[in-house]
Structures are given as structure tokens and as C-alpha cells.
């Protein structure tokens, strides 16, 4: 398999996952914000912060209101992580790698991109948003289902999985960070207990609510949620699970070249015991995890995407 094609497939998987996650995030926020007391200062803008988009957002918009945030996250073509940008990048990557993918994959991706582009206004208006976002999420899952059901478990598949799992792990650390940041920014003297609401929402954003309830079997609490999302061995979006899957996918790929470096990283340790463990130190830990994920990406790129050997 060509290195260039491997790279495009890896990125296609990342963008597919990113598009779905973005749609999911906006959908969950839609629900959450109805439940929060007015005194609480968690707004739509939090979503921009999670996605490291603060600077870019301020270049484009003045007001941090719902409409602008949703527009920025779903439709903005100057935001490289917006849902539409992700779908466009997905389409371009699949288009230039479709010779190794099932031909229906290209058709589905193309359809999804057209659907998103033609109906994007529905995502911005609140009344149709739910249906629209569901359409996007179902579209992404349909593509994932098609690929899972039809792709040979060859290197192309391994690169898909690598991209998908790395993007997921990244998103999970961002969701946790959003939760921690939200609670740090509230007034400690505020009598309303927001913990349950915020951590419950973090779980829902990661489609983790039901799996958490079944696995942990206690009420939603910050430390339990953090441990579940970071370290659960069965939940497909926990950081640990994603990294183990990545290592597994990598082990199926050829270890050519002298510069081959193992994909499984050494994770920084951080003990989470009670609510006091979820302060600024926790946020620093999450930041360290994101650096590790970036390092994993660099290793993948170094192992298989770059190739400067000269033939003998």
C-alpha cells in the first residue's frame, strides 16, 4: 500500500470521527443548556474552548452567542475543525484514496457531504437542529458500518482504525477538560450542586452515559466519570481502550525502516481519588495526555507516511 494512500485513509478516519463528534457535542449541549439554572455561567462558548478554537472564533465573531457558536462549529469554512470542513476533508481524502476503499464508501461520503451542505441552515436554526444532527450522526455511523462490514482487515483497515481511535481518545480528553473547566469557573459559594449535571453531560457527549451506569453502578460522580473515560478497559471511547486498539492496529502493520518506533505510548500517571483531584492539576494531566496523543500521531507518520529511503 502506498504511503500517501495510507496517510489519506488515516486522515479520512479522523475527519469522519471528528464530524460525528462535533455533531454529537452540539446536540448534547442543546439538551444540557435547557437544564442549567440561569445563574450558571456555562454557555455555548465552552464548545469553542473545548475544540481549541477561541482565537479563530474571535477573528470571525464578536458575540459569543448560541447562533455564532453553532455556526462556527457546524458550518464555518474558515474553521478547519467545523463539521462541514471535516466532511469536506473526509470527502477529499476518500476521493483520493478510493481505489483502496469499497466504492459504496465514496457514494455514502459524497451523499453525506451533499446532505450536510444542502441542509446546513437546519443545523443553525434551533427548531430543526435535532433532526439535522441526527441525520449527520446516522450518516457517519452508516459509513463506519459499511466499512466494518465490507473492508478486508488489511493495512487500509488498520490505518482507518488508527485514525478513528486516535481522534476518539483526543475528543475524550477534551470532553473531560471541558467538564473540569466548567466546574472551576463556577462560583464555589453557589448553592446549586452542578457536579451531577456537568459530569452527566460529559458522559452523554461521549455516548458514555449508559455504559457508565452499567459498569460503574453508582451515581454519577466526577472522579468515577474521569476514571471511566480515561481508564475503562471495555468502553470503546476511553483513552485506554483507544490506545490499546491503536497499538493492536499498529502491530498488524509492517515494521519497515530503521526509524520504526512503537505506537503504544507510556502514559503519564495521575491518581484520581476524590473531587479535589479534578482541579487544575487534572487539567494539566489532560494536557499531558494530549501531548502524548500528538506524539503517537508523529510516530505513526514517521513509521509509515514519510519515506525518504533511496533504493539500492
Amino acid at each position: 500500500m502506498l504511503s500517501r494512500v495510507a496517510e489519506r485513509i488515516y486522515w479520512a478516519a479522523r475527519y469522519l470521527e471528528r464530524a460525528e463528534n462535533t455533531a454529537r457535542l452540539v446536540g448534547v449541549y442543546d439538551n444540557l443548556l435547557f437544564d442549567l439554572p440561569r445563574s450558571v455561567n456555562i454557555g455555548w462558548f465552552n464548545l469553542v474552548v473545548i475544540n481549541s478554537g477561541t482565537e479563530l472564533f474571535h477573528e470571525r465573531y464578536r458575540v459569543q452567542d448560541e447562533r455564532n457558536v453553532v455556526k462556527f462549529l457546524l458550518a464555518d469554512d474558515t474553521n478547519p475543525s467545523s463539521m462541514l470542513s471535516s466532511l469536506l476533508c473526509l470527502r477529499e481524502n476518500i476521493r483520493t484514496a478510493r481505489d483502496v476503499l469499497p466504492s459504496e464508501a465514496w457514494e455514502l461520503v459524497n451523499e453525506l457531504h451533499l446532505f450536510a451542505r444542502n441542509n446546513i441552515q437546519q443545523g443553525i436554526n434551533r427548531s430543526d437542529r435535532h433532526v439535522f444532527l441526527n441525520g449527520i450522526i446516522e450518516g457517519c455511523q452508516g459509513i463506519n458500518g459499511l466499512l466494518a462490514g465490507t473492508m478486508s482487515r488489511d493495512p487500509a483497515w488498520s490505518f482507518m482504525r488508527l485514525g478513528c481511535n486516535l481522534e476518539r481518545a483526543d475528543m475524550t480528553t477534551r470532553l473531560l477538560d471541558a467538564g473540569a473547566a466548567a466546574l472551576l469557573s463556577t462560583d464555589p459559594s453557589d448553592p446549586t450542586s452542578l457536579d451531577q449535571l456537568v459530569w452527566g453531560n460529559v458522559l452523554r457527549s461521549g455516548s458514555a452515559y449508559m455504559p457508565y451506569r452499567r459498569t460503574v453502578r453508582t451515581a454519577v460522580s466526577g472522579p468515577e466519570v474521569a476514571n471511566f473515560l480515561l481508564d475503562d478497559e471495555h468502553f470503546p471511547r476511553s483513552v485506554r481502550f483507544c490506545l490499546e486498539q491503536s497499538a493492536l492496529s499498529a502491530s498488524r502493520l509492517p515494521d519497515s525502516g530503521e526509524q520504526y518506533s512503537p505506537v503504544k505510548p507510556v502514559l503519564p500517571t495521575y491518581a484520581i481519588e476524590d473531587d479535589s483531584s479534578l482541579g487544575q492539576n487534572f487539567r494539566d494531566h489532560l494536557n499531558d495526555l494530549q501531548l502524548v496523543l500528538m506524539d503517537v500521531h508523529k510516530r505513526i507518520a514517521g513509521n509509515w507516511f514519510l519515506c525518504d529511503e533511496t533504493p539500492g
Binding site: M1, L253, S256, E309
Partner: peptide
């Protein structure tokens, strides 16, 4: 060696 190679994930 005047052979044509392509850059792949297995090397050349």
C-alpha cells in the same frame, strides 16, 4: 539499478 519503485508502507 534503473528499476522503478513505489513508496509504500512496506518500504520501496
Amino acid at each position: 539499478d534503473d528499476m522503478v519503485y513505489m513508496r509504500t508502507i512496506d518500504g520501496l
